[in-house]
Simulated assay, not measured.
Amino acid sequence: MPKNVISDEDVEATAKQLESAVSDTIVPQLSSLQSAVDNLLQDGLVLTATSPKMQASYANFNKSLTEAVNNITQFSKQFRDVCKAVNNLDSQIAGGIPT
C-alpha cells in the first residue's frame, strides 16, 4: 500500500529554490548572453548580410527560452497548491470525525 507523505517545509523550500533559480540565476544569465551576442554581432563579428539575421535568430531563440524558463515557476505554484489542498482535505476529514 502506498504511503503519502507531505512535508510543508520541503515543498516550500523546493518552490523557493525553483523561483530563485529562475529570477536570480537563469533569466539574468540568458539576458547577459543576449547582450554578449548583440555586442559580438555589432562589433566583433560583423557581416553585412549574416550578422543581422544571426542577431534576430538568437533574439527569437532567447525569447522562447526565457519564456520556457519562466514557466518553471508554475511548478512551484503546483507544488504549493497540492500541499495546501491535501492539508485542507486532512483538516476537513479530521473536523468531520466526532470526538
Rank of each mutant, 00 (worst) to 15 (best):
M1V: 11
K3Q: 09
K3P: 04
K3W: 05
N4P: 09
N4C: 09
V5R: 09
S7M: 01
E12L: 05
A13E: 06
A13M: 09
A13C: 02
T14Y: 07
A15K: 12
A15P: 10
A15G: 08
K16V: 14
Q17L: 11
L18I: 15
E19F: 01
S20T: 06
S20V: 02
A21W: 13
V22A: 04
S23M: 08
S23Q: 05
S23V: 07
D24H: 11
D24N: 15
D24V: 11
T25S: 14
I26P: 00
P28A: 04
P28Q: 02
L30F: 11
L30K: 10
L30P: 09
S31R: 09
Q34G: 08
Q34H: 03
S35Y: 01
V37P: 03
D38W: 07
L40I: 00
Q42S: 05
Q42R: 08
Q42M: 06
Q42Y: 03
D43P: 00
G44W: 03
L47T: 03
A49S: 14
A49E: 04
S51D: 04
P52E: 06
K53I: 07
A56K: 11
S57F: 05
S57H: 05
N60R: 06
N60F: 08
F61A: 14
L65C: 01
L65R: 09
E67S: 13
A68P: 00
V69L: 02
N71H: 13
I72L: 15
I72C: 12
S76M: 02
K77N: 11
K77G: 09
Q78M: 13
Q78D: 14
R80W: 09
D81A: 15
A85E: 13
A85P: 02
N87G: 08
N88Q: 15
L89C: 05
D90Q: 12
Q92M: 06
I93K: 01
A94C: 00
P98D: 15
T99M: 07
